[in-house]
Nucleic acid binder design. Structure first.
Lengths: 211, 211, 211, 211
DNA sequence: TATGAATGAGACTTCATTCAT
DNA sequence: TATGAATGAAGTCTCATTCAT
């Protein structure tokens, strides 16, 4: 009657938690942090408001969990790329852009950027969390790749190798733009593949050792 | 009895209104739309909360007024951009970056871009207005400059000449970063002049006809 | 039309505040701190719940204000007595008992003692407040009187002159008892005047210099 | 199938019930009734929250059970008091104080007295029960001792011999004080032995036939 | 015009209690 | 019997907005 039980239950719990996180992400991207009511998340997840508190200590914790989850996935991908030594540096940079473009422009993550920005203004603790737990690891990965490329002579030692905004700022800008467009129900107007190619070519133009 | 007072009162009214708008902008840039409490605006403006409602119908109307007001300021700056035709293209691109860096990093406009994005879903009309009155002219001006440079042979016909995010996205990324840092009362950590130089060098590396 | 206005308004505000404090005391003595809902206080005072927050920062502050108010009155009386040098020490001690008996057994203050006790368990901050702002001053007054009496040779230097519980603990005990009796709608069974006389006689028996 | 298990189960059930009662007492003395969360009791008892409801109908029932249980312990102590008739009256009064000091300051009973007072309004039945089962016998015993002492000429016929608060109120006052100090995690600051001696000396000063 | 005072709707969070297993 | 999970009712506090003066 008790069956194996325990591990299954544990998995259930994890799935429930993920469910709630997913619903929270949904609400978050459309309503922002201030507009995300625990009620909404609960209703969307099909549970009672109080149930959310069984999985997350409070609204802030839920928000952090959503962010941590998403950023962990991205950072993980970047790290895998960075150490994939069978690719040359330009290729690794290209794949890195692939990951970032996909995350920021083809997933809900992009829509979170304005939310993060707005949220940070009212909740310094959340701003700090974002910088330390999301932005920090991401930046470190990217700068590590560039530094390695420079050290191995694959990249010129140009200041952009030390500046994340100059390297991938355009992606953030597009995320903002797309989020705005989405709010207006405008069709997404960016030809992402073309822009990505141009972005990479632009970077390599500056970074390639000769001419 | 109060007849004679009218015109004076009218001027006073306009000034008061502008005062309140200015204070609202202040609060808006530091706290975001959700964090802008009528109480705060009132206190900052030195009037009673109820007084605000004598000048603006409600919070949203005040927000709209702030944005409308700001769009005028931006258009002014754009006009200054356009009259610099006696300089060569690289120099004009440099000046353009100067203006944009200043606008995004040292004026409230940069801070408002994320605010607008974030409130876009609740206030699509405002978002549209912002896109048309602020972002639109800015984009057109920049693209016109690049197109002219290409046509005159001063710039290579690289796709980045047709993509505002690729050209100046890094600036928004930095605004975002700076705004986060400000939420933490951390001193701004970016060496903007150096970055600006790197940015220009990066662009010219791709755009310059030779090499 | 503006009349003198201001001072009257100010007085009104103070009266409102006192009203709310009084209602809070009412609810507090019957429901305890945990059972005192802001709603109840508001309804009793004939204002909206939110209005209370115009006068008191939060529930804790309201509670503190109630306590501070009551204790201030008592301590003030005690202090006046202590320095009333035309009375001899036994008389001053007697009057002091008068004050304490009246406060604890003939006013709602007595009923607050169990409330304070219960509240302290859940809110250390309030326990500290009670000790520092209520109990402390009261104890100091009482001990100062005894010390002066001893120094002037009016009282024997017995250890009870340095122990507030031994001096006036019985009053607290009766307050608890009365509060309990009140809860049961039992008629108050104590002959306070007689007990007070016995109490004083008991104290003077120990404190009087000769036999 | 489970027939044989019954008696064992029954014993287990009783032990479990007692366990839970003990844990509830623990929480009750430190947190008060309002602060006693079923969660806390469950965690302390090492069972699930739901399990408590297998043994007690609800929170109030658990509270009642704790009190009922305790009344037994007290009556036991009182019986020990009564059998000391071989000692003279002052010595017996001293022993009586010993027992009361121990009961009020070193056992949970002292802590519960204010808890009962505080919850009396919500649970008058409990208050009455407490008065009859705990306070009543205690008072009767004390007054009987004093009456006997007076009748045998060992004590003066002073009114304090007929007033429990005047005789032992200080002990409750100290319990109150100690309970507050405990809320603050402050080390208990009372030198109980010294106070007890002073207390006895104070009483005998009034009660001793000569002087 | 201007304001101090007031409020209702609503948000987060807690907890005794129940239910499916 | 025992529990992890779930919940509804309730409580504190906030804030845009209104009203009497």
């Amino acid at each position: 009657m008790a069956r194996v039980g325990k591990p299954i239950d544990h998995a259930l719990r994890l799935r429930r938690e993920a469910d709630i996180r997913a619903c929270a992400l949904d609400v978050l991207t459309t309503q922002g942090y201030g507009g995300m009511r625990m009620d909404d998340v609960a209703r969307l997840a099909g549970v009672s408001k109080a149930a959310i508190y069984l999985y997350f200590e409070n609204k802030e914790a839920l928000y952090k969990a959503v962010l941590r989850d998403l950023s962990g996935a991205i950072t993980g991908q970047l790290e895998a790329l960075r150490v994939q030594e069978d690719l040359d540096y330009p290729a690794r940079l290209g794949k890195t852009l692939d990951v970032l473009y996909a995350a920021m422009l083809e997933s809900p993550v992009g829509c979170l950027m304005p939310v993060v920005s707005e949220t940070a203004r009212q909740h310094p603790a959340l701003a700090r969390f974002f910088l330390e737990a999301v932005r920090g690891p991401l930046d470190r990965e990217l700068l590590a790749l560039m530094a390695a490329g420079v050290k191995d002579g694959a990249f010129v030692d140009h200041p952009i190798t030390r500046s994340v905004p100059l390297l991938v700022g355009p992606i953030l800008a597009m995320a903002f733009q797309q989020s705005l467009a989405a709010s207006l129900n405008a069709p997404p107007s960016l030809d992402i593949e073309a822009i990505k190619r141009a972005h990479l070519s632009h970077l390599l133009g500056t970074l390639s050792p000769r001419g």
